[in-house]
Amino acid sequence: MSSLKIPAFDGHNDFLLRLMREPRRREEIWLTGEGAGHLDLPRMKAGGFAGGMFAIYVPSPRAGREERAVDRDMMGAQYDVPLPPALDLAEAQVWALGMAGHLLWMERSSGGAFRLCRTAGAIEAAMAEDVIAGVMHIEGAEAIDADLDMLHLFHGLGLRSLGPVWSRPTIFGHGVPFRFPSGPDIGPGLTDAGKRLVRECNALKIMIDLSHLNEAGFEDVAALSDAPLVATHSNAHAVTPSSRNLTDRQLHMIRERDGMVGINFATSFLREDGRRGAEIGWEPICRHLDHLIAELGENRVGLGSDFDGATVPEGIKDVAGLPALAAALRRHGYDDELLKKIFHRNWLAVLRRTWGE
């Protein structure tokens, strides 16, 4: 392949939260770009962004204050950031439905450049037509009720991937706090409602995202689910000992179930010192990818950028920097076949396995 702009399918982004926070500016943010954040339609095209999971994530009521505190705390040599409390169901549903509406609007407003996809076949067809493929994902199931009626509603809207928790607790389980250094063995596993959620997601062919789940919850999903084990945006704990990263034991369980991991560009989960600063070279990403490939195999690793939800390396900067990442990985020794697997083929394959296609 002569071009470094390899089509990329991304396991996770938080672009919908940007739109939800500034709905009156959504046309500028989405269609023309405003130079802020990591994603917009022009930069997606420039970077070869072929599709990805668009997360519905409900912020805490005092999110601005909490985010500033997290930014400050995660610059320290050690940290343990307190988690916000569980969210109110009705408030979470307002936010989540609003974000789902924004995703549907993105398709309608794009002039055919963006398409909401519900199958792997639809993603592949969109990519063949040079149309960006979006998949509806929920990060933290605060908007889902214990009876799971809202799960069926969101599935009807196009939901195909769901993480039972962000990091704060839900009625379904518990996440890991932002703690460094730390392992993920923090707190209890899935609740009875969480176990019902896993079974119903299996029945509906909704992918279950293990990123943010604590170790006990991870184990419960592995015991209950009949689908591949997938972490959409997580890294290797052996390289960066953050509570948010996956241990080798967890990676082996994912490998045994023919799942995959999307590497997270968040610098606090890439850097050996766990700090949030963007001033890093390509070596941390290469180290994590090398370790993930060694433990999972080259068919079970992809991208899970966390664009618009994290501080990313300065060499990437935003979605238009994906070709620079491809060039760095080529210099590191990855050939074009492996790059194509990491950038899109592995995601398409695991979605086919998970969605029963």
Rank of each mutant, 00 (worst) to 15 (best):
P177E: 02
N214K: 02
G121I: 11
R115V: 04
V135K: 06
S161I: 11
A231C: 12
N235Q: 10
L148H: 02
S211L: 01
C117Q: 10
P228N: 12
E124G: 04
G217S: 09
M136C: 12
G163C: 02
A143D: 09
L190M: 05
D220Y: 11
F172D: 01
A222Y: 12
V131G: 08
P241N: 07
A122Q: 15
I123F: 13
A113R: 15
S225Q: 04
A231M: 11
R108Y: 12
E139G: 05
R168S: 13
A113P: 09
I206K: 01
G183N: 04
A120I: 08
A193W: 06
F114E: 10
S242N: 07
R244C: 00
A133R: 06
P177S: 03
T247Q: 02
H233Q: 12
G187P: 04
N235F: 13
I206H: 02
F218Q: 04
F218T: 03
V221N: 03
L157I: 12
E200I: 04
T247F: 01
L159H: 06
S242Y: 00
L151S: 06
R196D: 01
S225V: 01
H152N: 12
T191I: 01
S167F: 03
L190V: 02
T247S: 15
T232Q: 08
E107M: 09
E129M: 08
A216I: 00
L159F: 02
G217T: 04
A125R: 14
V176P: 00
F172C: 00
S109Q: 14
A193H: 14
S234T: 08
T191V: 01
D209F: 13
R249I: 09
T247K: 03
S109R: 14
I144A: 07
H174A: 01
S225D: 05
S161R: 10
N235W: 14
I186N: 00
S109T: 14
I144G: 08
L162A: 08
A222K: 14
F180T: 01
T247G: 03
H237A: 03
G140A: 03
A126S: 15
D185F: 09
S167T: 08
T119R: 15
I171Y: 05
V131A: 09
S243C: 09
N235K: 11
F178I: 14
E219F: 10
A238C: 10
L210V: 05
F178Y: 12
G112A: 07
S234Q: 11
I144L: 15
G112L: 07
R115E: 13
S234H: 11
I171D: 10
L190K: 02
C117A: 10
T191D: 00
S110F: 05
H137W: 10
G156A: 13
G121Q: 07
H174G: 01
L229E: 02
W105N: 00
H237I: 03
D147T: 10
F114P: 10
V230T: 09
P177W: 00
G194V: 03
T240L: 02
F172W: 06
H174S: 07
P228L: 11
D149T: 14
R108T: 13
R199F: 08
S182I: 00
R179G: 05
P164Q: 04
L213Q: 08
L162P: 07
H137M: 11
R118M: 13
A120Y: 09
L148R: 00
I171A: 12
